[in-house]
Amino acid sequence: MSVLDPIYAVAKENLQKVAFPEATNEKMMQAAYETGKEGYIIPVLVGDTAQNKALAAERGYDESVFTFVDIHDEEYKSKVIAAYVAKPGTMLKEKAMSRRMENPLYFAMAMQAVGEADVTFAGIDNTTGDVLLAGQMIIGLKPGITTVSSIGLADIPGFQGSEGTLLAVGDSAVCTNPNAEQLASIAISACDTVKELLDWEPRCAMVCYSTLGSGQGELIDKVKEALRIANEKRPDLAIDGEFQLDAAIVPAVAAKKVNRESKVAGKANVLIWPDLNVGNVAVKLIQQFGHADAYGPMLQGFNSIVCDCSRGAPVSEIKGNIVMSAVRAARSKK
């Protein structure tokens, strides 16, 4: 059974509207079509509807699977803009918003911001920077969160962790050198993400080269401060540290090195790296030596779900990311 099977089952029971602003892209339209046809999502193609319909026909797709939204439909656009600018705390005013919405990426996110879509799925034609900028500008960050970040899911053969072979790790892709406040945001967002996606009770370890003061220095100080901020902001979450990686995930090591009560030590299911250098190297190690399958990275920290897929991603990977995004959206509403 695949790791994704239970997630696919949840998606079928909670159909979400996923907006695709890059549907002209062949791989993106195929992934949107197949996930829609197979009953995992409601695919909403945002763009020039005449062009999208022509391409769908040319590619042999049943048009009825899609919902089409035309960015040239001025009446609908005005309705979305009016709803957007009426929301508290939005960044753009009417004129600037109208101009931005000439771009389907911004149009899709505006729809999402006002509840006309549940997820925006992009990144195959737009760069990650484009998606992050649009997300921060239109969707915005969750209250108390100071940075966008990402989390990945590793399925590591032979690993016997607290969630079997699965381990969530972050941030390995977005926030390069987080300060303490941003690192706290990454940990908080990661806990919310695994809860939404996997229905786990998150046990989140802030890892570095020290366990409870065994090492000292400014690199450790940052992690300790981040932990303090995270615990202060979200006392409801089990976030603990600072731990070395083995103290975080190996019960015997935790028993030796962590001489106090901890809901996390030895049984962490979420690891938070201190920066992107560690994150990138660690993920490569897990993949190369642990022969892990990696899922994601999934963006987190936004007010609602935005997904940036890799530009080189095959259709199968895009489909998996679409369904995971939809499940996060569905569960985040509960």
Partner: peptide, 15 residues
């Protein structure tokens, strides 16, 4: 220098 605030600033300039 947080990027989210810079995004807010760019939006302000547009507005």
């Amino acid at each position: 220098g947080a990027s989210v605030q810079m995004v807010g600033l760019v939006s302000q300039l547009e507005n």
